[in-house]
């Protein structure tokens, strides 16, 4: 008995045992996500700082008009919906985008579950839905950017001009949602690579579907970041 215990302890130092009981790839993905979380925190916190350094709008929400003098109320800026021009539906479109991204996170986690069961057909199905969800989100974002840039006849917004309020508001909109959108785009590319390799049977030959899990972590992180962008850019 004693010798068995000694061997076990010796083996821990001989390699072959993963620290924290996860594989190298998954652990590195986690630490990459920590660093990426710091990047997004930097962007969102600097948004908070610049916003706090501008005067807030005082007065009733219904009387709000766009002005360079104070920070805009986001729900007054983002109140448009495709094909319903002229209607004011505050935050409806961004709510839809949030729901699309949550759904694609669910289909991703179902793909991971199918991977555990080595069910190739199910992994293919759920990966495809995840890719479709990601592309739909990117399409929504393209529409929202177009609407924000063109504007409702008030000149719209760019990096140097902004009809909705201080120029910094438009700058942060482009940088934060743009940086998140870039992550969504690279997530879709990664998801597609995983889908392609599943279809061509690489993971069956390898004997496990762990790559689906690793890319799944990244995809959920993209969803997680959007939860924070939604709150701090659109709701607050």
């Amino acid at each position: 008995m004693a010798s068995t215990v000694a061997t076990t302890i010796k083996n821990l130092w001989d390699g072959g045992v993963s620290p924290m009981k996860v594989s190298y790839g998954k652990l590195m993905m986690w630490f990459f996500l920590v660093s990426d979380a710091f990047t997004f925190s930097g962007l969102l916190v600097s948004y908070g700082m610049v916003r706090a350094s501008h005067p807030a709008y005082e007065g009733a929400t219904k009387d709000f008009v766009f002005s360079q003098e104070y920070w805009p109320i986001p729900e007054k800026v983002f109140d448009a919906f495709p094909f319903f021009h002229g209607h004011s539906w505050p935050l409806a479109f961004v709510g839809l985008m949030t729901f699309i991204l949550i759904l694609s996170s669910v289909t991703m986690v179902l793909a991971v579950e199918a991977g555990h069961r080595r069910d190739r057909k199910a992994v293919e199905k759920w990966m495809l839905w995840t890719i479709i969800g990601g592309l739909t989100f990117l399409g929504c974002q393209a529409w929202e950017w177009t609407h924000f840039i063109v504007g409702d006849g008030g000149g719209g917004a760019s990096l140097t001009a902004n009809q909705y309020g201080p120029i910094a508001f438009a700058d942060f909109f482009f940088f934060i949602t743009g940086f998140h959108g870039t992550h969504v785009f690279s997530g879709v590319v990664l998801n597609f690579i995983i889908y392609y390799r599943t279809v061509t049977g690489l993971y069956d030959r390898r004997g496990h579907y762990e790559m689906v899990e690793k890319v799944g972590l990244y995809w959920h992180f993209v969803d997680l970041v959007w939860v924070f962008v939604f709150t701090f850019f659109y709701l607050v």
């Binding site: 710091f38 600097s46 908070g48 700082m49 916003r51 706090a52 350094s53």
Partner: peptide, 23 residues
């Protein structure tokens, strides 16, 4: 994974406070 995020909490408190002082 979770504990390093405490640095962000400090960053938020510090920068929002500094930002309101700029105003």
């Amino acid at each position: 994974i979770v504990l390093p995020m405490l640095f962000v909490v400090w960053l938020i408190i510090a920068l929002i406070y500094e930002g309101s002082m700029l105003h």
